[in-house]
Design a protein around this nucleic acid. Structure first.
Lengths: 199, 199
DNA sequence: CTACAATTTAATCATTTGATTAATACATTT
DNA sequence: AAATGTATTAATCAAATGATTAAATTGTAG
């Protein structure tokens, strides 16, 4: 008797599900799309993962970690300055998002479509309210809500990727040029954040 | 013979469709949801608007105009300074988005799910590349791509609303407090944008 | 090799879903 | 009021969709 179900088949399904779910979202995804993308029989999805919903939960959990976990080690580093952290956060996000440009729109849309599904599972809360980075912001600028500066930093890093489909669709900037633009931002956002700290 | 089909019924369907489509997205929306939301018979959707898709196109066109048209008059105003325009843009967006918080995520998601549907229909292209506002940015800072500053300004204005479901879900900030926060930003973004112009 | 368990497949099921239809109700014109 | 066109409804259809099943295939242990 085989102890493990075939890891390769399971992994093929996960890979296909990751691709299709993140490209089309949960509601627009057909289990048959995933089967075709994986090259496997439709019934195997239910054999290895009970249902479309269970399969989605796996992908979603993975993507939530990818989106919110990227900066977790940075924001709680006790050994770096506020300015250094800001630059590191922008760099970490942009580096990751260049390889996963659709990630933010996917995760944020699905959370919006099913808010109750993500009660406390998201450590975004702690990052935005209890992290060492936030404390450093509060020390520097006790006069304003630190969430303002967090939103500015995250927006400068993430928002371009959220807009990418529009930028491409409207021929504002395409493929290669987009990547150059966001690469520039890896360095610029640190500078800009410093300016915002003074403003 | 009645010349006009009953405007009231047509409008009830549009209103219900607007509510359901923007809340759940095209793929997750059932025509029966719209019928129920409107309190009308399901067949009336097809009687007045041929299909789910046609009905969606109407709502989508409306929402695209709402999202991209909000700042169109501002960015091409020849009589205001760069600084004034930045503040006006933030104010106009935030004022509109407080009443339509789900708008950006809805429009951007649908464009992402169906990019070819919006070839040139979107004047976002002109706003981001040919507007008088962009020219003013270029004059002031010929050393950097003006798209950087456009993305920063739009991101500071719009990104908080894209994150709202996460902020609420993670109890970072809720309902009333969120509205206060973004209201503060109406004034702050102008100041911040000036700081970015100097940075 | 044989027997047994795990995997894979094609066919099928029960619901859901967008759409249509035929009958009925309502309004307007003459 | 009769006739005609418009609006609304309940019932129904066909296709799509998530899931299951029973049979076939493959792999493994004894």
């Amino acid at each position: 008797m085989k102890k493990d179900k075939d890891a390769s088949t399971e992994e093929k399904i996960i890979e296909a599900a990751r691709k299709v779910f993140t490209r089309k979202g949960y509601a627009a995804t057909r289990t048959r799309d995933i089967a075709q993308e994986s090259g496997l029989n439709l019934a195997l999805l239910n054999y290895y993962f009970r249902s479309k919903e269970k399969l989605f939960e796996i992908i979603m959990a993975e993507k939530v970690v990818q989106l919110f976990g990227t900066i977790a080690p940075i924001v709680n580093n006790m050994d770096t300055s506020l300015e250094k952290k800001a630059g590191d956060i922008a760099d970490a996000y942009i580096t990751m998002l260049v390889n996963n440009p659709g990630l933010p729109l996917f995760v944020l849309s699905e959370i919006r479509n099913n808010p109750q599904m993500f009660g406390d599972k998201i450590h975004a809360g702690k990052i935005l309210t209890e992290s060492y980075f936030v404390k450093q912001i509060q020390e520097r600028r006790p006069d304003i809500n630190p969430l303002h500066l967090m939103l500015n930093l995250l927006g400068m890093s993430i928002f371009p990727f959220i807009c990418q489909p529009v930028l491409e669709g409207a021929n504002v900037i395409t493929g290669r040029a987009f990547e150059s633009l966001v690469a520039e931002r890896k360095n610029l956002i640190g500078i800009w954040f410093n300016a915002l700290l003074e403003a």
